[in-house]
Nucleic acid binder design. Structure first.
Length: 103
DNA sequence: TTAATGACCTATC
DNA sequence: CGATAGGCCATTA
């Protein structure tokens, strides 16, 4: 149980700066591709703020979830913008260029 | 213990 | 091609 969360956190923390990963990607790295929902839940509880870059986790569309809104989704995107993450006019992350390869 | 929910994804109509 | 339904796992009530 906690082990599962730890795996997810480890995967999220492993995301290099300027790069984003999708829930499915992290779930697969954690050990099961069906944990996508659990990944969202794990970040929802976010037991280790400051250690887990939740803003680097986006859905498969490259869009940050609205539930993030820990200060405004726009701020979330802006934060990523401060990194080297690229954004398109749709407000989505350019997965084709910033999607984490997993290594 | 059972049922319902959720920061999701995939498949089907 | 666009929208809808279902399913998976874990947590909460």
């Amino acid at each position: 149980m906690e082990n599962t969360f730890e795996k997810i956190y480890q995967a999220v923390i492993k995301i290099p700066k300027g790069r984003v990963a999708t829930y499915g990607q992290i779930a697969t790295m954690a050990g099961n591709p069906r944990w996508s929902q659990i990944v969202g839940y794990a970040l929802h509880v976010n037991p280790k703020p400051g250690v887990i870059p939740c803003h680097r986790v986006v859905n498969r569309l490259g869009e940050v979830s609205q539930a993030f809104a820990f200060g405004g989704e726009n701020m979330q995107i802006k934060l990523l913008k401060e990194e080297v993450v690229k954004f398109d006019s749709d407000g989505r992350v350019v997965l084709s260029d910033c999607l984490w390869d997993g290594k």
